[in-house]
């Protein structure tokens, strides 16, 4: 009976309230963390960018370098991070930047797979993402990407875990408030890969998302899984217009 009463209140649309105005992640960080990100000489993520630059110019298993196809200065990579995740026609599926880099490595360099969160994979991703710094996120959610986008949105509003919370509860309805001592941001993906002080390392967006699933005591999707790719596409569309900041610095 009481249960039914609850349902009577439940007939509310499931389109998540989007945050307005859009505010990038650093606005929710302390001034010292913000300052770390803003200064290229202090931003620890720049170490990964530098290492990624070396890998960009290093020969793959077949002797070819990323630089041989894409140019030594990587200017051709400008904007690439801003349009990922994306449905890649040559792969026939949705891929994020990490997956796209991996595909180039195996297809064009004959190199063995890198583990997703390995230092080399993060370095290459940081190097490529850095080329888009300052450019607005502009992903496509049409055509073949539509299904993943819808799936991402459903995941975003689904209550999960023993704590029974959805992404939307924290990042749309309660951003700006504080969870214990941590301000909740709008949950934008634009700073990633980011150096997280708590990890003492650069880490991927998927690692950050897994932490949010862990936080609500939910089964975590694997890094690189279709679920996280779909969620990432939804987040990117939601952040449309915000600038890529990689490598970010976060608490």
């Amino acid at each position: 009976m009481l249960f039914l009463a609850a349902f009577a209140c439940a007939a509310v649309a499931q389109e998540p309230k989007r945050p307005s105005p859009l505010k990038p992640g650093p606005e929710f960080q302390s001034p010292d963390v913000r300052a770390l990100q803003a200064d290229d000489f202090a931003n620890p993520g720049m170490l990964w960018v530098a290492r990624g630059g070396e890998l960009w110019r290093a020969p793959g298993a077949n002797g070819k370098r990323c630089a041989d196809c894409h140019g030594a200065d990587a200017a051709s990579m400008k904007g690439v991070a801003a349009r990922h995740p994306r449905h890649d026609p040559s792969l026939g599926r949705l891929t994020d930047l990490a997956g796209r880099i991996e595909a180039c490595r195996s297809r064009h360099q004959g190199s063995p797979d890198l583990a997703r969160e390995s230092p080399e994979a993060l370095a290459l991703e940081a190097f490529v993402a850095h080329q888009s710094r300052g450019l607005p996120v502009a992903v496509s959610t049409d055509g073949p990407a539509r299904e993943a986008y819808e799936r991402g949105r459903s995941l975003y509003v689904a209550r999960v875990g023993q704590l029974n919370l959805a992404c939307t509860h924290c990042h749309d309805e309660r951003w700006g408030r504080t969870l214990l001592a941590e301000p909740i941001s709008q949950g934008h993906p634009t700073g990633w890969p980011a150096y997280r002080l708590e990890w003492q390392s650069l880490g991927s967006l998927h690692r950050r998302l897994r932490a949010c699933f862990f936080g609500v005591r939910a089964r975590q999707p694997a890094a690189g899984s279709e679920e996280l790719l779909a969620l990432e596409l939804y987040l990117a569309d939601r952040a449309r217009g915000l600038a890529v900041e990689a490598p970010g610095v976060r608490r």
Partner: peptide, 29 residues
């Protein structure tokens, strides 16, 4: 608290039914 308001943000602290995707370490508890 979701019995009062299905949109509530606060977790249901003594309920095991109707939860999705609970991590194995907490399932059923």
């Amino acid at each position: 608290i979701t019995r009062l308001n299905p949109e509530a943000v606060m977790p249901a602290f003594h309920r095991t039914e109707g939860l999705a995707r609970v991590a194995p370490a907490y399932a059923g508890r």
